[in-house]
């Protein structure tokens, strides 16, 4: 294959015909392909690829990799008397503070809440995705659209809706009072945050599960049934292992944002239910302790990384 040395800049007013100027790819070059020519063409190809990728590469390094390193640097910095961060006197104080009782309590709470959220999402979404994947093509598409709409809808607004529902003047409270009961006291508790997290991140579980189940070769299930496996055995031995990639992907996609959640606890949680995301934000916007906030951010990222690797390993074993 002949590769021309034309930079990927556009000729103005491109026509479907080749430009009448000097011929770009001469037919002769296509005939004898020597190793050197092939190597040169591969190099040119690599240059072109890098050239196309360069703007995004630079952008992501500048606004992603550099900031990540900055957070790392800041986590070792100190603060002056006014609370301003000074980039000197490097120390491990912020990391030491991670092991204080206050932080550990918040961390354990966040971790448990994220785990329970993931478990509930999985338990509800698996049969749900299974149901959608086993419908006819038309019904499947309609149901899928119905799942996508909340997925694409504004997260803040969806969380806010629960604040209205669970509030002391909300419909649940009114029903409870109409039945002669107590006014509803669920808002600003861990349960309210849990509901909000499950509601907010459920679509992240449904869609990968659905994708895995839909891609599955259902003839394998038929084969199991032909070999006298009952429905439950066929599910356990065939369907479940084959859908494991969806389970792993969905769990990660729910667990990670749950662990770092900020909007949900801020709107539905109370002062006694501070979560990790909440706590990090308060270090920056209220306490102005940037080094400690940076160390917290790094700790959260580290736990996420470990959880992800662990989960992928576990998922791979069952495959």
């Amino acid at each position: 294959m002949a590769v021309s040395e034309i930079p990927p800049t556009p000729p103005p007013g491109s026509s479907p015909l080749p430009p009448p100027g000097p011929p770009i790819s001469k037919p002769e070059t296509a005939a004898p392909v020597t190793p050197e020519l092939e190597k040169a063409s591969r190099r040119a190809e690599a240059r072109r690829g890098l050239f196309i990728a360069l703007p995004s590469f630079v952008y992501l390094v500048l606004l992603f990799v550099v900031p990540l390193l900055l957070v790392f640097v800041y986590s070792f910095a100190t603060r002056d008397a006014t609370g301003q961060t000074v980039l000197e006197g490097w120390n491990l104080d912020s990391y030491r503070r991670l092991f204080s009782a206050e932080v550990l309590e918040i961390f354990v709470r966040s971790f448990l809440l994220a785990t329970v959220t993931t478990a509930i999402c999985l338990a509800l979404a698996y049969p749900f995705a299974f149901y959608i994947a086993t419908r006819g093509p038309r019904m499947r598409n309609i149901l899928l659209v119905l799942v996508m709409i909340p997925f694409w809808s504004n997260f803040l607004v969806r969380t806010y809706a629960w604040r209205v529902i669970l509030g002391s003047e909300g419909p649940l409270s009114q029903i409870s009072q109409a039945l002669g009961g107590e006014p509803f006291r669920l808002l600003f508790t861990n349960v309210a945050v849990l509901i909000g997290l499950v509601y907010g991140f459920m679509p992240f579980m449904v869609l990968p599960l659905y994708a895995a189940l839909e891609r599955m070769d259902w003839r394998l299930v038929e084969a199991a049934r032909d070999l006298y496996a009952d429905g439950w055995t066929a599910f356990r031995k065939v369907t479940l292992p084959l859908s494991m990639p969806g389970v792993v992907a969905g769990s990660i996609l729910v667990f990670i944002p749950s662990l770092g959640a900020y909007v949900t606890p801020a709107l539905l949680g109370g002062a006694r239910t501070v979560l990790m995301g909440d706590y990090i934000v308060s270090q920056f916007l209220a306490a102005r302790n940037w080094p400690f906030g940076s160390a917290l951010s790094f700790a959260v990222m580290f736990v996420m990384l470990v959880a992800t690797i662990f989960y992928f390993r576990a998922g791979a074993k069952t495959l």
């Binding site: 900031p67 957070v71 990670i256 944002p257 770092g260 995301g277 906030g293 940076s294 951010s297 959260v300």
Partner: peptide, 8 residues
């Protein structure tokens, strides 16, 4: 997560 990104 977006909190970390925001901090960065």
């Amino acid at each position: 997560p977006d909190v970390t990104m925001a901090v960065m």
